[in-house]
């Protein structure tokens, strides 16, 4: 079991959901300057293959439903990193009518990266932090989603049609 835990912490395949401007910080993180692959972190093409959902920036309602769907399609254990201020409080879109302000209300978040934009160093730092948390067994936000499924669904249903966008299990 420990071996699995260890490997989980050392091998994080992420799906960077390029919802907002934050995505622009990821190419430098991946390429030769910062090279996140040395930590075993790789971008993946589909949610099925990913462990880590990276929400890079603000989420409109239109995007949120897709994020929720992607999240639900990921196999457990799965992790979410909120990226930039927008995921915490709306950031510069704090008074926008169609941007959600608090990501936590809709999907459980393991870790936030503060800033607008956070620099690649901050991103890497977050990854390492998450790695630590997984190794210690602290990154359990995905369990929260299962436990409080009704609550999350209720929150989600306030902004979009849950019936249509949820994955039927």
């Amino acid at each position: 079991m420990k071996l699995f835990k260890f490997s989980q912490s050392r091998s994080l395949w992420m799906m960077h959901f390029c919802t907002g401007c934050g995505a622009v910080e990821l190419p430098p993180t991946m390429t030769s300057r910062f090279d996140m692959e040395r930590f075993g972190i790789m971008p993946m093409a589909t949610p099925r293959q990913s462990d880590l959902l990276l929400i890079t920036g603000y989420l409109t309602i239109k995007t949120l439903k897709r994020v929720v769907r992607a999240y639900e399609q990921m196999p457990t254990p799965r992790y979410v990193i909120g990226f930039g201020s927008c995921t915490i409080n709306g950031g510069m879109y704090w008074d926008s009518y169609n941007v959600i302000k608090k990501l936590e209300l809709y999907i459980p978040v393991d870790l936030y990266i503060n800033g607008c934009m956070p620099r690649p160093e901050a991103i890497i730092d977050a990854f390492l932090k998450l790695r630590e948390m997984i190794a210690k067994g602290e990154a359990n936000a995905w369990k929260k989603y299962i436990e409080n499924y009704e609550w999350y669904k209720k929150n989600q249903s306030e902004v979009f049609d849950v019936e249509k966008w949820s994955v039927k299990k």
């Binding site: 589909t46 949610p47 099925r48 439903k65 897709r66 994020v67 769907r69 039927k168 299990k169």
Partner: peptide
């Protein structure tokens, strides 16, 4: 079969 990766479209 609708639970499928379609670029997260429902």
């Amino acid at each position: 079969q609708t639970d499928n990766y379609t670029a997260t479209e429902a």
